[in-house]
């Protein structure tokens, strides 16, 4: 059986979730490997969310927010951006491939860039293969 990536995407309510919606309305063709969790702001995404997802066996995690400067809460995505940089480094230190996580921005009108992101990321995870980091010591 071929490997189908299981990807979790955190989309903010105001921009990237609307972009996902628009991509749906526009009937754009994109992989169905993504499970979207809607959050009010990408700043809501604690690094714990991402770590837990990887720890529980998700193959890749996407965080999508509004473009810098366009955040509905003005600076929510600033914090996401900083945390993400630290998280990426931390994963690398502990031996987890940081390519399994990605932070990107999509405005409510960017349905096409949104689908492209999903397509690219799904392909990237497909190449990386199943998540080898899942699970405890059991």
């Amino acid at each position: 059986m071929t490997f189908e990536p299981n990807i979790l995407a955190f989309c903010c309510n105001w921009c990237s979730y609307a972009a996902a919606d628009l991509a749906g309305i526009g009937r754009m063709d994109q992989p169905t490997n993504i499970k979207i969790v809607r959050v009010m702001c990408s700043g809501r995404v604690k690094p714990e969310f991402v770590i837990k997802a990887l720890s529980d066996g998700v193959d890749g995690v996407l965080i999508l927010g509004c473009h810098i400067g366009d955040c509905h809460y003005v600076t929510g995505n600033h914090r996401t951006m900083k945390r993400f940089q630290v998280l990426e480094r931390l994963l690398e230190h502990i031996g987890i491939d940081p390519r399994r996580i990605r932070l990107d921005w999509a405005s409510a009108a960017e349905a096409e860039p949104f689908s492209n992101m999903i397509r690219e990321f799904t392909e990237q995870i497909r190449e990386l293969g199943p998540n080898p980091y899942a699970g405890s010591y059991a």
Partner: peptide, 20 residues
Amino acid sequence: GEIPPEFPMFHLIRAYHMAD
């Protein structure tokens, strides 16, 4: 009630919180 605690969850959380 679980030892060792789940890896990488437990230690990554602590490490992240120590970063700054």
